[in-house]
Nucleic acid binder design. Sequence first.
DNA 1: CGAACCCTTGAATCCTTTCAAATGGTGTGG
DNA 2: CCACACCATTTGAAAGGATTCAAGGGTTCG
Lengths: 207, 207
Amino acid sequence: MGRRRTVSAGEPLIWEDDDSLLVANVIEGVLKLTTSTADGREQIVGVAYPSDFIGRPFGQTSAASVVALTDARVCVFARNDFDRFAREHPELEHKLLERTLAELDRTRAWMMLLGRKSAPEKIATFLLDMSERLADNGCVHQPGAQSGPARQFTLPFSRQQVADLLGLTIETVSRQFTKLKADGVVALPGRRDVEILNRGALMALAG
Amino acid sequence: MGRRRTVSAGEPLIWEDDDSLLVANVIEGVLKLTTSTADGREQIVGVAYPSDFIGRPFGQTSAASVVALTDARVCVFARNDFDRFAREHPELEHKLLERTLAELDRTRAWMMLLGRKSAPEKIATFLLDMSERLADNGCVHQPGAQSGPARQFTLPFSRQQVADLLGLTIETVSRQFTKLKADGVVALPGRRDVEILNRGALMALAG
DNA sequence: CGAACCCTTGAATCCTTTCAAATGGTGTGG
DNA sequence: CCACACCATTTGAAAGGATTCAAGGGTTCG
């Protein structure tokens, strides 16, 4: 019933305010969910990792655009078909409900960050969050036994995308990264590579 | 199975990070969902109106506190009982799923506001949002036939709560209200009363 | 090798916050 | 019924943090 599809980095899968025609499961890769204002400001409102569900079932339009951050593979379904199928399979709806509730919790925690945290706090919170999210998905560069938070990882985001996630400008993000490096809290081996040198300091900064 | 309960204005119903012991339906009144930082900053992450569902089913802890903004009546259920009951009634789970998806959409739209909008834009967006939300709930002071957005209404929030909703300080909120009044966009008959004089201007300001 | 792009850095500006004080409305008690 | 105290809100001035505008590296890819 579902159709496999690849989406290359930067390519859109769903457009904001479009008719909600399809839903999908992420098999591999990372995608961003965004909303935009008329004048082009963008806010990333969610990030989808492997096994995450994307799209808007039971609704006419989707409230966010979905764009691949990395090359990705997804399993897409026509929304109509999915809706019908879901209503006939309570187990599936229950799974979806649990996921949606968890996503809502995450989203609300992010609202705290957007509304009340300073730039340094946002960056620190972001790095700790990535360190945990990426550890669960084999995106980590450090093949370790247990899957605690990753000490070293590669961000699936450009600086601009980090800014769009945190509600900052690219310049502020860059400056905060530079400061954390200068203070010896993190190392930045590559543009998108992060190594946490002092997790305690980062947690203290996260507010 | 559910027990009716009244919650007076300012009284908490659920504590952040507490074990999720109960869920509830709002019968009457308005409640806020909040998260806080260790140092006391607060962010309102949701507002529950009559017929809204609150609490965290299928989870061990609730991510937000719930506090009544006005005197309220709710119908509470033990989470355990509710979880069991829901799993046996797919129709209920479906309803809950639809509501949760809608709430997630609203929450994501609010992230745009928190992350990317200026203070004037936040206030304008807020007033338009209230004008629509309150119209649906008989909270309106203007007994009209059709239920379009309300022209006049009473906020269920203090200035500080508006600030906590928009990610601003109370002083900034006050100044923006004053400016809107001075510009003739709104009238402020009472502390919590708003009358929209120029909806078009408000929409232009909302960004 | 050059061009394009992304990221970093610098300086000035602006918006929001912070700190402080005044105002106004409310409720109480004399 | 009026005086007073209390609390929310408003207003002012100063400070600060993030943005804006501008320029300068550094990578990557044709």
